[in-house]
Simulated scan of single mutants.
Amino acid sequence: MAATRLMALHIVRDRTLAESLKERMDYTEDELKTEQKRYISTYGCDIETADEEFLLSHREYHANVRDIRKKEIIAYQIRQSFKPGEITPEKANEIGYELAMRFTKGDYAFTVCTHTDKKHIHNHIVFNAISMDGKKKFRNFYYSGIALRRISDILCFENGLSIIKPAPYAERKKKGRYSRTKNYTDKKLEFIKDIESKVLTGKGRGYVNWAKKFNAKQMAKTILFLQEHKISSYEELKAITDERSGKVRQLMDSMKAKEALLAENKKYQKAIVDYGRTRKTFVAYKKSGYSKKFYAEHEAELLIYKAAEEVYKNAPGRKIPPMQELRDEYGRILAEKKAEFLEYAQIKKDMNEYLIAKKNLELLYQQEEEKKEREGRDKRTRNSHQKDVL
């Protein structure tokens, strides 16, 4: 289990940018807290000169991109605290490094200092606000804290650690602290807990065989997905996927029907234009007594006229609507088709996550059934042997 927090580090009042960086780095690298800097790792910098390297990136950025602003953000700090007794300092530092790498995508230099001076082992991750190439600055987007927590939860799950489950809003205390009323049960949380216990059981004997069927990272995402969408059972998940699959098929059929209408409309518009453009040529051909010489000289136009005439003959009532009416209809159908496509694309995008979650649960429960079947066969075999002995 790990709690995370993302904080922006500003230039300290009455201090320079360099002094502010050094002050923050000195605290996180404290030898007493990191056991003589034993539990420290870095990316894109050296721990002894990290503040100076951060400063060089800042100078390059401010010289080429823009000047220093008031309340300038110089770096960001991530605090990642683990449950007491659940992890070693070495593993905590390894997870902290992976968290920083995934969150910054390798674009920003960072240091990971694991502190062991408290009951709970915790990481202080400081990453530069300026990219390593000195060309861009990290954007602290609106849901960055949620994204950070999600990555941390996935890493905890991958490494067999527990995950914090937020209490329902009505049960939360002030200042974001969570509590549970006595004997409280939540069907949704029990469902998630059941899945987690099944997955974590595979971490023991027979894990190699289990790992062949499951991707731990994908399963972690599935559990978080179920939590976020408040799905309380496999049946509920299946109902959602079935409903969305039906909607996708309905939209596809509707779009195909509209494509056919658009093609027919376009054919009529083309026939009107071609007929009007080649009508005079056909009249002249008719006046020539259907002369072969005239036909040879104007064959292309006469063939176009003939094709347009066929469209008129095959139209309902041998009549094509006026051009303006056709254009208005074409625009209306096209707008409806575009709206359906946008809806189709969104449902398809969301549905992929639901389908992945559904497939992972099916594999998980299939494994459970296979395990029960094997245990049943072993039990029957033992009973059979005992009867033979008697």
Rank of each mutant, 00 (worst) to 15 (best):
M1R: 11
Q227R: 14
T281V: 14
K247T: 08
S384H: 13
A3F: 14
E98P: 00
G44D: 04
K105T: 04
A100P: 01
K71T: 05
Q366A: 09
G246S: 09
T114L: 04
R380M: 09
P321I: 04
S254Y: 10
R277T: 08
D153C: 07
D30L: 01
E243I: 03
E353T: 06
S232C: 06
I74A: 01
V311L: 02
G376Q: 12
H385Q: 12
K165P: 02
T42V: 15
D378R: 15
F127L: 03
K91D: 03
T49H: 12
N64T: 13
S291I: 01
K358T: 04
K188S: 05
E94L: 06
R24T: 14
Q324N: 14
A18V: 08
V248K: 13
N352P: 02
S197T: 08
A216D: 15
R38Q: 13
A100I: 01
S81P: 00
K83R: 11
I164L: 10
E325V: 11
G44N: 03
T28W: 02
E158Y: 06
K387W: 10
A2W: 05
N314P: 02
C113R: 00
P322S: 09
D67V: 09
M132V: 07
L261S: 15
G96R: 00
L355S: 07
C156H: 02
A92T: 12
E329Y: 15
A220H: 07
V311A: 02
A50F: 10
L200V: 12
K256S: 11
E52I: 11
R244G: 00
F157L: 06
D153M: 06
A300L: 06
